[in-house]
């Protein structure tokens, strides 16, 4: 599965592969680099990742430290983004909250990819009953709206960040099954796969050498865009009280509290929303840019 996560291995492989040699990976990178909005997306994502990673070493107050003498204080020099209903520093909670958001986005998509892609390959490559069983289950899961499914699952698993990630991951899995299956079906019909079969290559070899490299680009694009969806889903679940539990900081639960103090402390509601917006925008821009860069039809 390492190949899905690290497309560079495939690039190196395909360089020696006469069949895949016509795929100029360098051109993809060049196209991506000159794609202005994709670069902006990349910068936004890197900014938030750095924020999440550096949270423990930044000179900011403890995000869970309460100060009853400084409750709901407007932004000031001591608290640039103000304080919340029990005197915690909003900026510090915002910075630490990046961890929950990014973790939820990445882990839930990793679950969806690791479960969905193999199932999609199995359905697309083996066909028959395997395909029928997997496809029907996928359709049934897709029929329940993403968030309703995630809410129901998060409720049954019990409210916590881990369970929210599992719930979002399961809800997003059918997307990857369907995408991978369609991709495998179109690749498996190609002449070079037929010839690989004709010369007697084992199934495992055909799958890893010819099928997998071809499904990586669309899966990568979908995964990036799904991280954006998953971050909003985690914030939504936390907002409803089904995600990260207090006092641990998360943008969704910060907004949940903030909505009760709109007239007294509007700053509490402002920043977590802007943070969610920017990080989601970053992943959306990055995904769109990747799609354009990887699309051979686009110049």
């Amino acid at each position: 599965m390492a190949q899905v996560a690290t497309p560079t291995t495939i690039d190196a492989e395909s360089a020696n592969d006469p069949v895949l040699d016509h795929r100029p990976e360098n051109r993809v990178w060049k196209k991506f680099r000159t794609h202005r909005s994709a670069m902006l997306g990349g910068i936004l994502v890197i900014f938030f990742v750095a924020m999440a990673l550096l949270a423990p070493v930044l000179p900011i107050p403890d995000p869970t430290a309460t100060d009853w003498g400084a409750v709901r204080q407007a932004p000031s020099a001591a608290h640039p983004f103000g304080t919340d209903e029990i005197g915690r520093d909003v900026l510090s909670r915002l910075i630490w909250g990046a961890q929950a958001s990014l973790l939820a986005g990445v882990v839930s998509v990793a679950i969806a990819v690791l479960v969905g892609v193999p199932l999609g390959i199995a359905a697309g490559y083996f066909g028959g009953w395997t395909d029928a069983a997997i496809s029907r289950c996928t359709e049934a899961l897709l029929a329940a709206p993403f968030l309703i499914l995630a809410i129901a699952l998060a409720a049954f698993l019990g409210p916590s960040l881990t369970n929210a990630m599992i719930a979002i991951g399961i809800s997003a899995t059918p997307l990857f099954v369907r995408l991978t299956r369609g991709q495998v079906l179109s690749v498996a019909a190609e002449d070079y796969v037929d010839s690989a079969r004709a010369i007697g290559l084992p199934t495992r070899k055909i799958l890893t050498r010819y099928i997998l490299p071809n499904i990586v680009p669309p899966v990568l694009v979908q995964a990036t865009l799904t991280v954006a969806t998953a971050i909003i889903a985690e914030a939504s679940l936390s907002f409803l009280g089904l995600g990260q539990q207090p006092p641990a900081p998360s943008w969704g639960s910060m907004l949940n509290t903030a909505k009760n103090f709109l007239d007294q402390a509007p700053w509490m509601a402002l920043w977590p929303g802007i943070a969610i917006f920017l990080v989601v925008l970053g992943f959306n821009l990055l995904g769109d840019g990747l799609r354009d860069a990887l699309d051979p039809r686009e110049k």
């Binding site: 977590p272 929303g273 969610i276 989601v280």
Partner: peptide, 10 residues
């Protein structure tokens, strides 16, 4: 990219 619950709050 805007979370709709935040848009509502704003």
């Amino acid at each position: 990219s805007i979370p709709n619950f935040w848009l509502g709050i704003m």
